[in-house]
C-alpha cells in the first residue's frame, strides 16, 4: 500500500513542501503546496489534494446530476443544476440528430418544471455545462420526494462503496436517487418509509463530520445490527469523508510504477 498522509487544513495552510503534483483544491507557491479550502488534505505518491468540507456545487464533466427544466428555446432545454451555471440539454440529444424544431414538439418529452437525471458531457471555464440523458438510468424523474443537501456531503451520504445509502434504502424500503449536485429524490411505496428516509438523509447532512454516524443512522432507523455487540465501531471522524471519496485508491496502488513515470514526465515538462 502506498503511504497517504492526511491532515486538517484551512485556506493558506502548507499541505506539503517539495515537488508534488497538485491535484485538487491546492495551489503551488514556490516550493510548497498550499490548501485553498477547509478540509482534509491528502498527500500521497500520485499528488496532493484537499477534500473540501464546505462549498457550493461546481459542475464537473461526467458528474451525474439531477436538474430541473426551467426554460427551453427551439434547440435546447435550460436546466437548473443547483449551481451558479445553468446547464443546457440539447434537443438533438433526446430526438436524435434529425431533430427539427419545426416538426418535433419539445414539450412532448420534457416540459418546464420537470426533473431529469443527467450526465454532464461538457463543461469548462468558457462554456456552461452541457447535459445528456442518453445513458442507462438517465432521463425524466417520474416522481418522489425532492430534497437538497450540500454537495460536499454527497460522498458521505453514499458512504464507503454505497454502504450508507444501502442501509437507508433497505431499512426504509425506498429507492434514493442522488445527484452529485446535492439534489436527492426519494421514492417509496410507504409514506412512512419515505419520511424516515428523509429524516435519515438530513441527519447525515447535518452530522456528516461526526464520528460513528452509520451506527446512529442504524439506530434511528431501528436496524438490528448483529455485529454491534461484537465489533467496536471504527472511529469515523471527518476522515471518513476522505475515505469515501477515494474509492479508486486500490487501483491506484497497483499502478504505482506507472504513476511514478507520469510524475517524472510532469517534472520534466515543468523543467522544460
Amino acid at each position: 500500500m502506498q503511504e497517504i498522509k492526511r491532515k486538517y487544513v484551512v485556506p493558506g495552510d502548507v499541505v506539503v513542501e517539495g515537488n508534488f503534483r497538485p491535484l485538487m483544491n491546492v495551489v503551488r507557491t514556490g516550493n510548497s503546496i498550499i490548501s485553498t479550502r477547509i478540509g482534509i488534505a491528502e498527500s500521497g505518491r500520485e499528488g496532493v489534494k484537499v477534500i473540501p468540507l464546505s462549498g457550493v456545487y461546481i459542475p464537473r464533466v461526467n458528474d451525474i446530476v439531477i436538474g430541473k427544466i426551467i426554460d427551453h428555446s427551439s434547440l435546447s432545454w435550460e436546466v437548473d443544476v443547483n449551481s451558479c451555471f445553468s446547464a443546457h440539454l440539447p434537443a438533438q440529444d433526446v430526438f436524435g440528430r434529425d431533430f427539427s424544431p419545426a416538426r418535433d414538439d419539445m414539450g412532448r418529452f420534457l416540459s418546464i418544471g420537470d426533473l431529469i437525471t443527467s450526465r454532464i458531457i461538457a463543461f469548462d471555464r468558457t462554456r456552461d455545462p452541457m447535459l445528456t440523458v442518453q445513458d442507462r438510468d438517465l432521463g425524466k424523474v417520474q416522481g418522489g420526494e425532492l430534497l437538497k443537501i450540500s454537495a460536499t456531503r454527497v460522498p458521505r451520504l453514499i458512504g464507503k462503496r454505497g454502504s450508507m445509502i444501502q442501509t437507508i434504502e433497505q431499512a426504509t424500503q425506498t429507492k434514493v436517487l442522488i445527484g452529485q449536485n446535492g439534489i436527492v429524490v426519494v421514492n417509496g411505496r410507504k409514506p412512512d418509509g419515505v419520511l424516515q428516509a428523509i429524516r435519515a438523509i438530513k441527519m447525515v447532512e447535518e452530522e456528516a463530520h461526526t464520528s460513528n454516524l452509520t451506527q446512529r443512522i442504524k439506530s434511528l432507523l431501528n436496524v438490528a445490527d448483529p455485529q454491534q455487540t461484537e465489533i467496536i465501531p471504527k472511529p469515523t471522524t471527518p476522515q471518513e469523508i476522505a475515505q469515501d471519496s477515494k474509492n479508486a485508491d486500490d487501483v491506484q496502488s497497483t499502478i504505482e510504477e506507472v504513476e511514478e513515470e507520469i510524475i517524472g514526465e510532469v517534472e520534466k515538462g515543468e523543467k522544460l
Binding site: G12, I34, T36, R37, I38, G55, V56
Partner: peptide, 11 residues
C-alpha cells in the same frame, strides 16, 4: 469566505 468554501490563497 473560507466557511463558504471559496478557493483562497490565504486567509
Amino acid at each position: 469566505l473560507a466557511d463558504a468554501g471559496i478557493n483562497m490563497r490565504d486567509i
